[in-house]
Computed example of a mutant assay.
Amino acid sequence: MSYEPPRPARRLLLTPEDNEAPARTRRLRRLGLGERPEPALDAFADRIAGLIGAAYAMVNFIGEERQFFAGLCAPGAWPTTKADGTRPHVDRCLPRDHGFCPHVVVRRKALVLDDVCDYPRFACNPVVDEYGIRSYLGAPFMDSTGIVLGTVCAVDAEPRRWGKAGLETIKSMAADLGAEIALREEIPEL
């Protein structure tokens, strides 16, 4: 008989339970959000990247099983190279357990990770290895009913200090988007 030591956990990160996900998903459907790319939200993501000086930025709607980047600023491919020598495609859809935005939605407050590898809870997330993400800055945005619909976020392939200015900017952008969505409800042609 031989002793086999227990295998270390492959991933330390557990995506938090999201009790609001069903209500959020219904709300997103009613608002017509989170199912297709939107040029206005792409422009919003471009503005986030420009204001913060980030390589990539997103407007991310979080559903029950997946996340959808209805707004995306991702010039070129992600910085990592896969085993077959190709670079990962910048897709608008990720499983719910990828990335950091699901944590922001459940926490209902901003998250700043200057270097995701400094946080064992986040360092093993699939986006670190698959996409080369090393820093994250995100904030939740809400609709007029108080449901968190998703996040606005910025990511980079290098560790970086987002600082207080970055945090205040991302929180302000999230509030602006929440107000814009509320205005869309009042004036649907927007």
Rank of each mutant, 00 (worst) to 15 (best):
K109Y: 08
M58K: 03
T81R: 08
P79E: 04
N19G: 07
R107W: 12
H89R: 00
E65C: 14
V127N: 05
G85Q: 05
K82E: 13
C124S: 14
A139G: 12
I133M: 13
P39G: 11
Y136E: 03
F68W: 01
G132R: 14
G32A: 04
P22I: 14
P39R: 07
L41V: 02
A54Y: 07
L113G: 09
P95M: 08
T81W: 01
L94F: 15
Y56N: 14
L51F: 00
R108P: 03
Y119K: 00
V106G: 02
M142P: 02
R26F: 03
R92E: 07
F44W: 06
L51W: 00
Y131R: 15
R24K: 09
I133S: 10
Y56T: 15
A45Q: 04
R87M: 01
R30C: 00
R66A: 09
R87W: 00
V105M: 04
C93K: 02
D97A: 12
G32P: 10
M58Y: 08
P88W: 00
F68E: 06
G85Y: 02
I133D: 08
V112P: 13
R96L: 15
C73G: 09
V106Y: 01
D97L: 10
L41I: 02
A70C: 05
P102L: 11
E64K: 07
C124I: 07
E130K: 03
H103I: 04
G132A: 15
P120C: 15
L41E: 06
A45L: 03
P126A: 08
R121Q: 09
T25F: 01
D129A: 15
L113H: 08
H98Y: 13
A123R: 07
G63K: 12
D84Y: 06
A55P: 01
P102V: 14
I52R: 02
P88T: 03
P126E: 05
C101L: 04
G63V: 06
K109P: 11
V116S: 04
D97G: 06
A23T: 13
R96T: 13
R29G: 04
K82F: 03
L113P: 07
L111Y: 03
R134A: 10
A23H: 12
D97N: 12
V59G: 09
C73L: 01
L111K: 06
F122Q: 01
L137P: 09
P75R: 15
G132E: 13
G32S: 02
G53S: 11
E64T: 13
A45T: 05
I52P: 02
A40V: 02
V59D: 05
V106D: 02
V116Y: 01
H89S: 04
F100K: 03
E38F: 00
F61N: 11
V59W: 00
R36K: 15
A83S: 12
P37T: 13
T80M: 13
R24V: 13
R108N: 07
